[in-house]
């Protein structure tokens, strides 16, 4: 079984929907330890993505869709999340290349490329209370699920669950990157908003593949 460009488009539509729905929650998380604009920024970025999907050509490849989404996010988010998610999705676009069908191994490679792009841009490591703390367990879980013979949908569900657990596990951490790092121990007890938006994005990816 494999996923095609329709899955990427559905993933982005679902992302836009859940980010709009969770705009206030992400904003509240960010107000606690950051500058409070993460919900607004993600909603604005994915609203622009949604509008851009209208003009995407019917024969676009998964990589082509991801590239367009990445450029839109870089241009419209206006906070750290723009360059981070944008760079990650650009790397994912490179990883997908011109493939039209993504099998399990390609899905794992795509998720790994997103994570690697985010690490490249933000220079964060695991345990620094950033979105990397959601992405890395997600990639590991996806890889394990693929090795266990799971379908693309199963791989994405494993990634989404691990990302959600990873986001929750940022709560006791001290932030080492971004605005929250100025807070020192006062960041303890608060969930990282970037890790939370990653969990939402990966849940959207799994939901878009619910029949795969």
């Amino acid at each position: 079984m494999s996923l095609d460009a329709t899955w990427v488009v559905d993933w982005m539509r679902e992302s836009a929907r859940v980010l709009a729905e969770n705009r206030a929650e992400l904003g509240a998380l960010d107000r606690e330890i950051g500058d409070g604009d993460h919900g607004e920024n993600m909603d604005r970025g994915f609203a622009a993505v949604l509008a851009g999907l209208e003009t995407i050509s019917a024969d676009a490849s998964p990589g082509g869709v991801l590239q367009k989404v990445a450029m839109t996010l870089i241009s419209t988010i206006g906070g750290a999340a723009g360059p981070l998610y944008g760079t990650g999705l650009l790397k994912a676009s490179d990883a997908a290349g011109t493939e039209t069908q993504l099998d399990g191994a390609s899905i794992v490679a795509l998720l790994r490329a997103v994570r690697d792009g985010i690490v490249l841009r933000g220079k964060a490591e695991v345990g620094e209370k950033t979105m990397v703390d959601a992405w890395t367990p997600a990639v590991d879980a996806a890889s394990a699920a693929e090795s266990a013979g799971e379908s693309p949908g199963g791989i994405l569900r494993a990634a989404a669950e691990a990302a959600s657990a990873g986001a929750e596990a940022t709560e006791p951490l001290i932030a080492r990157k971004g605005r929250a790092s100025y807070l020192g121990e006062r960041a303890i007890g608060h969930r990282d908003p970037g890790a939370q938006s990653t969990a939402l994005l990966l849940q959207a990816a799994a939901d878009a593949a619910r029949n795969a």
């Binding site: 906070g79 750290a80 999340a81 723009g82 360059p83 981070l84 841009r121 933000g122 971004g178």
Partner: peptide, 14 residues
């Protein structure tokens, strides 16, 4: 100035 400015600048450079 702050973190995301650096990320935006580094991305624009790329």
């Amino acid at each position: 100035d702050l973190g995301s400015a650096i990320l935006t600048a580094a991305t624009a450079r790329d």
